[in-house]
C-alpha cells in the first residue's frame, strides 16, 4: 500500500488529511522505499508535506491554517 493511493477525499478542508491504516505490516512510500509498521494503526501523510514521510506528523494542520 502506498501513501499516494490511499488518500481519501476531504472536501471540508483544502489540505488532505491523513489516512488511517490498520493491520498493515509494511508501507511503500511514494519513492518506493518500504517502511516497516510496528504500530497497530498508523496515519499516512495525505498532504505530502510531512517531515516524517510516509507518516503523518500533523503538518496538514499547519498548511490548513496558512491557507485559511
Amino acid at each position: 500500500m502506498t501513501a499516494d493511493n490511499c488518500r481519501r477525499e476531504t472536501p471540508e478542508i483544502e489540505v488532505a488529511a491523513p489516512t488511517v491504516v490498520r493491520g498493515a505490516t509494511v508501507v511503500a512510500a511514494a519513492d518506493g522505499v518500504l517502511h516497516r509498521i510496528d504500530r497497530p494503526v498508523v496515519a499516512l501523510c495525505g498532504c505530502g508535506r510531512s517531515a516524517a514521510l510516509p507518516w503523518c506528523d500533523s503538518t496538514h494542520k499547519v498548511l490548513a491554517d496558512r491557507s485559511s
Partner: peptide, 15 residues
Amino acid sequence: HVEADSVHEQVAIDD
C-alpha cells in the same frame, strides 16, 4: 509523540 499522536488524533476523534 509526533507520529503517535498524529495517529491518535484521528483514532480518538473519529473512531
